[in-house]
Design a protein around this nucleic acid. Structure first.
Length: 288
DNA sequence: CACCATGTTCCTTG
DNA sequence: CCAAGGAACATGGT
């Protein structure tokens, strides 16, 4: 469930549940997801540590912990999480059956923290160096039109590909990149530096709007993070009974190839850029 | 068997 | 050094 909004909603959900909980034991079933941290070091650091806070940076989850070792002095550290393509994290009763692909389980006493990840692309590690390369948070005040203009000024890369660059803007992924460009009426193949000032401003607004709206739809709805059901917690596939809008209504172009554009009725196109699908409307996002 | 999938990193080539 | 493209990672759905 990976882009910025999904991670943000998950962080808001997990924060209150984990705060103050102490780790009793750690079971590593797939050491690869800890890399480059060794399972030994991982277990040693986490055992007896207490969660103090959960926050987010781009698509990363930051679990803030404090080790309470009596013998040694207290020390704060961060456990960095990433959901990859298929990762999920939730609390679950001990008696609940674990899913087939569960790389890591943390025993919290009364319940356990489960990291489920079918494709094992996700991470839970003590190495936080990945954060250093991230660009600005698109929803923070520091992300201004002027900053976006500067970031796009020299590049000839297609704007859609640029939006996926985490060192440019942190948290935008393949779905919301297509969505933001559709809302801005910009052709995905436009070289970044060829965008007009008006287009940059529209794009800036659209990025913030699609992310904010996605967070809102996830936050106002009682999402089910219990771990039952395949797609629970995925905002774009959300289908809770109380969901105000179905995912078809929430996403305007993504995965809608051949279906009528919600704006003009022309069929939505699919192209491949940097080996990823891009969805757009040839009429509403015309090539200049 | 084919192709596709919300992500990131590494390698090659220019 | 940079940009661009592709493969790799691993598993499942259609």
């Amino acid at each position: 469930m990976p882009e910025l909004p999904e991670v943000e909603v998950l962080v808001r959900h997990l924060g209150p549940l984990l705060k103050g909980k102490t780790i009793r034991a750690v079971e590593v079933r797939r050491p690869g997801i800890l890399e480059p941290t060794s399972p030994e070091r991982f277990r040693r650091s986490l055992r007896h540590a207490t969660f103090t806070e959960v926050s987010r940076r781009g698509k990363y989850l930051l679990f803030h912990l404090r080790s309470e070792a009596r013998t040694r002095k207290k020390r704060s550290f961060v456990l960095l999480g990433h959901l990859g393509m298929t990762g999920r994290m939730y609390l679950s009763p001990h008696k609940a059956e674990l899913p087939k692909h569960t790389p890591l389980i943390i025993d919290l006493g009364n319940e356990r923290f489960v990291f489920e990840d079918t494709r094992y692309f996700g991470r839970l590690t003590l190495d936080t160096s990945a954060l250093e390369q991230l660009g600005p948070e698109p929803l923070h005040e520091e992300f201004t039109v002027e900053l976006l203009t500067k970031l796009l000024a020299r590049s000839v890369q297609p704007i859609k590909v640029k939006l996926l660059d985490q060192s440019l803007i942190a948290g935008v992924g393949n779905i919301y990149a297509s969505e933001a460009l559709f809302r801005s009426g910009i052709w995905p193949g436009t070289p970044a530096r060829a965008l007009t000032p008006v287009q940059v401003k529209k794009l800036w607004r659209s990025i913030r709007r699609v992310l904010t709206e996605a967070i809102k739809s996830g936050s106002t709805v009682p999402l089910n993070f219990s771990g039952e059901g395949k797609r629970d917690g995925l905002l774009y596939f959300g289908r809770n009974a109380d969901t105000p809008k179905s995912y078809e209504e929430r996403l305007r172009v993504y995965d809608r190839q051949g279906k009528p554009c919600v704006s003009c009725g022309d069929p939505v196109s699919r192209i491949v850029q940097a080996a990823r699908s891009t969805f757009y409307c040839m009429h509403c996002q015309a090539e200049p």
